[in-house]
């Protein structure tokens, strides 16, 4: 079991509202990712669920029980920290055993649990080392091992991969996803990296300034973002936004086109610009195109794009891929767009 319900949860530090009233239902066995820019309140909310921060108002239910004022140790949750937070004075074995010893588990049982965790996480050779002798990836595995031996009803991850280098991050991402499939336990994962969110999540909650802007599956957020913030945050490279002049009867104040939907055309097209910096990634090419009166637009083209710095190009995009936003940033139903 591991369902968590947040009801009108808020948090204030002094007179700053860090979390404005939030309602969220996290289902048993789900992998949910909290994503948003730094300072948006996602980590604070995670720490509130963990019990490391007080809830100013509202309720947090865990498995149907009100846990708002339960101390962290009694919530049955395990947390993996950004800095791994291993106990540097204890061996890997004792790090993993620590929560079990606190729970007064018999030694034989502890040994068995450590052995099985070590097997799942490939830690067998390192059990008697101190954390200081391990690499970043190994430390992260120990931290996860310490979490899984307790068989928590949910795992909380607080930006666990941000201290790892890029290639290791991709591996650990897969390992954590794999672990989720094996354990089938609820996981709440906080990150500022939308790629992590998109690749790992069953559902994503996009945070901004203390509120959840939108909750949905990765594809829902990509295809039907509820507003300009979500549209801009999800997807890489970022969506291009083009301010448009107000027309009577049309509330559109801005349109958005994702780089992968922007095309170079021989016709007149919607915009005309000059090619700026070209980034060749091999499999694809990112073109930065300067459009007069609009600003720079990013275009994603094939790997063997023949354009050069300084070329003049005409750009267009399919009408059904152009998103319309009103002055407040809300997504509008699609209407035909004919350039500025």
């Amino acid at each position: 079991m591991g369902s968590i319900t947040l009801k009108q949860v808020t948090k204030t530090f002094g007179d700053v509202n860090v979390i404005k009233p939030i309602d969220l239902q996290i289902h048993d066995g789900e992998f949910i990712v909290f994503v948003g820019p730094s300072g948006c309140g996602k980590s604070t909310l995670l720490r509130m669920i963990a019990g490391l921060e007080d809830t100013t108002s509202g309720n947090i239910d865990i498995d149907g029980q009100d846990a708002t004022n339960t101390p962290p140790a009694k919530r049955g949750l395990a947390m993996v920290f950004q800095s791994y937070a291993l106990y540097p004075h204890m061996s890997v074995r004792n790090n993993i055993a620590f929560p079990l010893k606190r729970a007064k588990m018999p030694p034989a049982e502890i040994e068995a649990k450590i052995a099985s965790a070590a097997k799942i996480l490939n830690l067998g050779d390192y059990l008697d080392r101190k954390p200081g002798q391990l690499s970043g990836g190994q430390r992260q595995r120990v931290a996860i091992g310490r979490a899984i031996v307790r068989q928590p009803s949910a795992f909380l991850f607080d930006e666990p991969l941000s201290n790892l280098d890029a290639s290791l991050r991709v591996n650990m991402r897969l390992e954590i996803s794999e672990l989720h499939k094996t354990l089938d336990t609820t996981m709440i994962y906080v990150t500022h990296d939308q790629v992590e969110a998109m690749t790992m999540a069953d559902r994503i909650a996009v945070f901004n300034a203390g509120v959840i802007e939108q909750v949905g599956t990765p594809l829902e957020l990509y295809q039907t973002p509820i507003n300009r913030f979500v549209a801009g945050f999800i997807g890489s490279p970022k969506m291009n936004f083009i301010e448009v002049e107000a027309v009577d009867g049309d509330p559109t104040s801005c349109v958005g086109v994702r780089p992968e939907h922007l095309k170079v055309t021989q016709d007149k097209g919607l915009w005309t610009g000059k090619v700026g910096v070209i980034e060749h990634l091999g499999s694809e090419t990112f073109l930065h195109i300067h459009v007069d009166g609009v600003g720079p637009l990013t275009l994603k083209a094939d790997g063997d794009c023949p354009l050069k710095y300084g070329d003049d190009v005409n750009l267009t995009a399919p009408q059904n891929k152009i998103m319309h936003f009103d002055a407040a940033g809300k997504t509008l139903p699609a209407t035909p767009f004919s350039g500025n």
Partner: peptide
């Protein structure tokens, strides 16, 4: 690091 103490709190201390 603060997080180490918080980890111990999560671990039931």
């Amino acid at each position: 690091p603060h997080e180490i103490l918080e980890a111990s709190r999560m671990d039931g201390c």
